[in-house]
């Protein structure tokens, strides 16, 4: 591969831009996390270290309820979308069939359509069929956009799988069912796990679609935070926001480490 030793490979300004990009990406995150430990009531003026805003957040029943809703929806959406996506990926990885490209396009649609368009379409649909806006409507909407995210890593894993394992299993008189449970599924598991993790994070973080289809009773954490931000910038928002960031960063690093161990 490339050797960075060769001076010919150096392009002027490239390193500077890369570091600029890094600072640009991380400065807001760092500042938010630092300010969440600020004792001052004014959110942007530092006066000393304190954990008080975290305890304010944890004592706020509305935030806790929103967090519970978020976790319920993300967990259910993850399970349903991962199961659906796994089944679909198994069918799609077989021999090609008519209509396959249509299904591919359908799987791409939630990724392609701007979120606000999906949000509007889902809202109008739920209202038109007379479905009450609540946890169920949010769950349905989340399952829809989680399916493609869960599908991608599973499909990629199936694609890279050596067909000889399956052939060997059938040569040894394993039934198709036994082959699936003993060979395909265990080999597929890393893909299923990363698909599920993707779906979980995407669902947990979603704001726009949830904002449209949640109704009053199904406020999730991002929707609640949005409401708080619109009321004003307070240290409480800093604390809850920092908590969300830290949880997702931990989650990503964890999944990265898990992925490394497997290799």
């Amino acid at each position: 591969m490339t050797t960075s030793v060769n001076p010919l490979w150096r392009f002027r300004g490239v390193a500077g831009t890369a570091w600029f990009a890094m600072v640009y990406l991380y400065l807001p995150i760092l500042i938010l996390i630092v300010l969440s430990f600020n004792a001052n009531k004014v959110a942007t003026i530092w006066s000393g270290f304190s954990l008080q805003w975290y305890s304010v957040v944890l004592d706020n029943p509305n935030i806790m309820r929103a967090a519970k809703n978020s976790l319920i929806i993300a967990s259910c959406a993850t399970v349903v979308s991962t199961v659906f996506a796994t089944l679909a990926a198994l069918a799609m990885s077989g021999p090609t069939f008519r209509g396959q490209s249509v299904i591919n396009a359908m799987l791409g649609l939630p990724l392609l359509a701007p979120e606000i368009v999906t949000a509007v379409a889902s809202l109008l649909f739920f209202l038109a069929i007379g479905m009450e806006l609540g946890l169920l409507s949010v769950l349905v909407a989340h399952v829809v956009f989680c399916i493609p995210f869960a599908y991608m890593p599973i499909r990629a894993r199936l694609e890279g799988m050596d067909p000889r394992y399956k052939e060997a299993a059938s040569d040894l008189y394993a039934t198709p069912w036994a082959t699936f449970w003993r060979i395909t599924l265990p080999l597929l598991m890393p893909g299923v796990v990363s698909g599920a993790m993707l779906a979980f994070i995407i669902s947990l973080d979603d704001f726009v679609i949830t904002f449209f289809v949640a109704g009053a009773g199904a406020t999730t954490l991002p929707v609640y935070i949005f409401g708080m931000i619109r009321m004003g910038i307070t240290p409480e928002v800093n604390a809850i926001s920092a908590m969300m960031l830290l949880v997702s960063i931990l989650f990503v690093i964890l999944s990265w480490l898990v992925g490394r161990v497997k290799q």
């Binding site: 991380y26 807001p28 500042i31 942007t44 910038i233 960031l245 997702s248 990503v252």
Partner: peptide, 27 residues
């Protein structure tokens, strides 16, 4: 990994961080 971490963190919250940076009297 460092470039993709922001992708996995909540965008709404990160947008809020810019309000802390950019507002009058902000950082």
């Amino acid at each position: 990994l460092l470039i993709s971490i922001p992708f996995w963190t909540n965008l709404l919250v990160r947008t809020f961080a810019w309000m802390l940076l950019l507002r009058n009297g902000g950082l």
